[in-house]
Design a protein around this nucleic acid. Structure first.
Lengths: 280, 280
DNA sequence: TTGCTCCTCACGTCACGTGAGGTGGC
DNA sequence: TTGCTCCTCACGTCACGTGAGGTGGC
């Protein structure tokens, strides 16, 4: 390294704004190794040529990129692969920024309005033939996974001979909520004959008695509908096991903006009480 | 709790979108206690009246607010105090968002331009009388602390009889960089007699031989100047112990926008080499 | 030569997640 | 009655920070 001189860990720390403890840690995990380590004393020596790499690491850490991902970026086989990894991370970051802004807005709304009480109604849903994609999904990837799956189902419908018999929808297992990871089924109700291929399957969504409410607005507020439903069901009827359903009456794929979204949330119940309040 | 019904931990999880593990944790640390716990079985029972509190907790956790801070918000003595705590957190969040956007921009710049080589010059700084505020500061609070301290010094100058003899400046101890916490001294050079009061003191900033470079642009890129300086010093002269100085030639308090900022960074060196390369 | 820098353990932190192994409720 | 829900440890995770106790470099 022609013009490269050596720096002690303290000098390298001041030069890169990484703490000494962080530098030792990056050495331990092999993310940023000093060019030289004194065999007798263990003293680390960094080259001035390592300063730019350290700066890149610091930037990514400021953005909370995990060390493993940073390593992947730094070790990318070629510049093109490296740049792809970086760009995709930046895109995820910018999405996360939007997410945070949405959460801030939603928190403000929650603290001001408190949320007008949502109307809850009962519905007996019949057995429903549908095309579906199912997978074990975790909480953080759910929205993205669902968007992709529903897109795929929509494409399959427009290509084939079958007819859509209802809006985009999904089934969420209890584990998905309770462990923030579990089975999710994206589905679209269909009429008539369907040829399935790829990851798609033809399923019968079982009949169910449901308590239903409609949420208007972005998904970041969807928990309000769940709160209203869970509360209503606990206070008025008996809940039953089984997945919770969502129907995407107006969704982003319709080109609607977040405030205009309409999502139906359906909570499975034991039996719909009759009008007189008696139960058979 | 008149109309309030009880929910199992699983039902409460589905209603609030908090995982069962998280709910148990919030019980353990006393952040969100179930209204009732079965003595024999240990089963937790939550009231429907607790759903809104859970939603607030979830929002704050989505924003990465620490549990202790959430507890403080929830236990605030009165609504006004609670709202103040929330608003101040939201303001910090929005600042952090700007920070992140700045980091993204700076990373992009770093990956594209790489940064044109910065010019480094030598300077023999004389002993400088100054008014100063010193404190043990940690990394994350440094920018805010420094802004406040320099403001205070500016106010003291405009009120008194002394004359400013140089731009706003600061001294940073090695520990500040190496451990991300250490002594920082905010100072303004002055001429003539000065009456000091409050947290201010009158100090003589010691004379020093320095390697100096000027950074143009926002503070998020300042590490580039440090990289250039640390590298230059390692390759050309001997570094010396002692604090690093920053001079805020054009600062935000001048009403300049971030891209127009000019900050001088000064790295202490053992001895300025003479023009012929010989050392006395 | 002195003290200052650097070293290596070992353990702590924060907010849960991950099983293991077991009991109670409908 | 069966299995499903819920329980409590104990330990792991991630990216370092916090000392303690000690040696080497200028």
């Amino acid at each position: 390294v022609a013009m490269s001189a050596l720096l002690t860990i303290g000098e390298f720390s001041r030069t890169t704004h990484l703490s000494v403890k962080a530098l030792r840690h990056y050495d331990d995990v092999g993310l940023l190794r000093p060019v030289e380590v004194d065999v007798a004393s263990g003293y680390r020596r960094y080259a001035t040529a390592q300063v730019p790499v350290a700066h890149v690491i610091r930037r990514f850490r400021d953005l909370d990129m995990p060390l493993e991902q940073i390593r992947a970026v730094l070790e990318a086989p070629d510049i093109a692969a490296r740049d792809r990894a970086i760009v995709s991370h930046l895109e995820r970051m910018e999405q996360a920024l939007e997410q945070t802004q949405a959460t801030v807005a939603s928190l403000r709304a929650l603290l001001e309005g408190g949320g007008a009480a949502l109307a809850v109604e009962y519905r007996a849903a019949p057995l429903t033939p549908a095309i579906a994609i199912r997978d074990h999904v975790d909480w953080e990837h759910a929205e993205q996974w669902l968007g992709a799956a529903l897109n795929e189902l929509g494409d399959a419908l427009s290509g084939g001979a079958s007819i859509r018999a209802g809006p985009d929808a999904a089934l969420f297992s209890p584990e998905f909520f309770e462990q923030h990871a579990g089975e999710v089924v994206a589905f679209v109700p269909v009429d008539g004959e369907v040829a399935v291929a790829g990851g798609l399957e033809l399923v019968d969504i079982p009949a169910a008695e449901l308590a239903v409410t409609v949420h208007r607005g972005p998904f970041s507020d969807l928990d309000q509908a769940y709160g209203a439903l869970g509360t209503y069901v606990a206070e008025h009827v008996l809940a039953s096991a089984g997945p919770i359903r969502e129907h995407y009456l107006v969704s982003e794929s319709d080109g609607a903006d977040p405030a205009a979204l309409r999502t139906e949330v359906c909570w499975p119940i034991r039996r719909i009480p009759d009008a007189r309040g008696a139960q058979l």
